[in-house]
Design a protein around this nucleic acid. Structure first.
Lengths: 206, 206
DNA sequence: CCGATTCACTGCACGATGTGCAATTAGTTC
DNA sequence: GAACTAATTGCACATCGTGCAGTGAATCGG
């Protein structure tokens, strides 16, 4: 058996982190996050209120599941996509992965989010952070200046829109539609708007 | 001179409302809304803190400028667009109008928003409310069931994405780009993805 | 014109949020 | 085992957001 390189201290911290997230997701999905206090979440995870705030800046963030390290992970994943892939296609692969990892949390998360519009806003706060990193990579891939050309910001915002609409529709269908599949279909529909040009930059000829 | 049908009481209320919004926009653009307290905004508008909360549920809402009556206004505007207009085109006209009215507030608003990611989230809280109403109308126009077909949610989310990306790019360009114009251009680019008739050329009109 | 009513504004109280600070305890390093 | 590091905790405090009741001005009905 290979010894795990992370020690007991780190393992306990991750356990606390996970317990808080699970408690927040469960309580939030059950009763709506507005009717849940931080004290209840902390008690359910058997830690103090102050410890909760050492792991998450707010109860909403515990639901959304934003982690700073994911930004780098997402940026690296996008940067390592094949250079001949269109930006929209690269975003499809990278963002679609979000639905696949920790997929068991998504039903609870979508249930909690649909119960409180404020959570959708908070979700976008994290998406904005993702987007800023992704726009950088897209700009580098296409050689466009994001301060002068709307393309990088637009294609990224549109991919995020597809992600969000997929969540909404999958949730509204009551499980009949799978969010990951719906997301792929949405991107497929949007493909004509971002047709690649001869130079392979992915920029439409306008 | 035609007598204004609204009385003095209502006029004073609107004046208070406007004073609070202007104070919030100015202070938020200057120092970032996080460093501004509700007490400061209320003092700047010469009312009590409690009165502020009678007009806005939070200081972020005072910046964003969400008003419930706009939802109906937006829904009616969309519903009264010509039936032969594509949903995307109808959304372009209706949402583009948001940039044009109270246009003098947009620079301050964009400045305040860009200074605080949480405001972007709050902006989406209001957009979600708009979207839900718009999705209804789109579903009615197209005869699609929004719980089974992703189209209404997708085209609306994409239009919102274009709106947001236009704000971002216009702000990043430092005034070189006009948000309303950039928005129209973004919608034009997205047109081929939502064109009901597959055009032989496969190219969007430029 | 005058009494009754409505409503914007106000102060007060209170639970909840989010953060700085210092102490404790357990894990890690040398 | 001693020194160090970091997760957890309690406490204090500013701020947020809301319920409630009171006041005064605007409006309405006679």
């Amino acid at each position: 058996m290979v010894t795990d390189p992370i020690g007991r201290r780190e393992r306990k911290r991750l356990a606390t982190h996970h317990a808080l997230r699970v408690a927040a997701l469960r309580l939030g999905a059950e009763r709506g996050i507005r009717d849940v206090t931080v004290e209840e979440i902390a008690t359910a995870a058997d830690v103090s209120v102050r410890t909760f705030y050492d792991h998450f800046p707010s109860k909403e963030d515990a639901i959304i599941g934003f982690d700073a390290w994911r930004v780098d992970q997402l940026r690296d994943a996008l940067a390592s996509r094949p250079a001949d892939e269109t930006p929209l296609e690269a975003l499809r692969v990278v963002m679609g992965q979000l639905f696949r990892e920790s997929s068991e949390e998504w039903p609870l998360r979508m249930r909690a989010i649909s119960a409180d519009p404020a959570l959708i806003g908070r979700m976008f706060v994290s998406f904005i952070t993702y987007e800023r990193a992704l726009v950088e990579v897209i700009a580098e891939r296409t050689g466009l200046d994001p301060e002068r050309d709307p393309y990088p910001a637009l294609v990224t915002a549109v991919a995020t829109a597809a992600f969000r609409a997929s969540m909404t529709t999958a949730r509204a269908s009551g499980g009949a539609l799978d969010p990951a599949t719906t997301f792929d279909a949405a991107i497929a529909r949007l493909r004509p708007a971002f047709n690649p040009t001869v130079d392979g930059s992915g920029r439409a000829p306008c």
